[in-house]
Amino acid sequence: MTDPHFDRAIDRSQMQVFDEVAIQISAMNKWYGTFHVLRDINLTVNRGERIVIAGPSGSGKSTLIRCINRLEEHQSGKIVVDGTELTSDLKNIDKVRSEVGMVFQHFNLFPHLTILENLTLAPIWVRKVPKREAEETAMYYLEKVKIPEQALKYPGQLSGGQQQRVAIARSLCMKPRIMLFDEPTSALDPEMIKEVLDTMIELAEEGMTMLCVTHEMGFAQAVANRVIFMDQGQIVEQNNPHDFFNNPQSDRTKLFLSQILGH
């Protein structure tokens, strides 16, 4: 499959060795009332791994990654992030949240703050970084997502693609060890998707541990180490992208792939 977006697919020819566990989810279940939204999830993510989570709408993809930084609470099983287990202990939750960055479908920038203030807020108030230093870091990441000239504008003055890049930069300013993406390009016009994906590819090249919920199968092919397919709250299948796309095992995966790829 060739996709013009991913001419710069990252080099995976050498075997990468992942020997450190970043996220460990075991026998995890979650209910919304009586609705069993996540069923017996077992998932190990190693440091530096890039995982794409795919699956039909309503299959629990968002819920799964939101459990990882406790935006949602799981009811049974165990989630350990960076050696910290997520329980109702607020200390642990805050610790995990400051190590895990999250990018949302609708950006969720703070509209009453400038771009620069959006980026420096958490470093200053959570990490206690001096303002000057936080601003330098912020400018560094704004350069990286290629919009340093927008620093003093408000989010409402930026295009969707720019806002999403700011949102990525905002997460990076906290120097997270893990990044979660929940359909980061789904709310964007087609011509803006590439600029956001490019930013994500760059992150991947630098070895960031990433979990992305996305329907961009080109991105999955080019970047992911592993593709996870979810349906009805379960992990149905996981494999490296090559085998996942060319040799899917379950019927549900085949059906999903035929729907999403075979227009």
Binding site: N69, R70, L71, D94, R97, S98, V100, G101, M102, F104, N108, L109, F110, L121, A122, W125, V126, R170, S171, M174
Partner: peptide, 8 residues
């Protein structure tokens, strides 16, 4: 959610 996810 954005505020929470930043650890505030």
């Amino acid at each position: 959610e954005a505020a929470d996810s930043l650890g505030l």
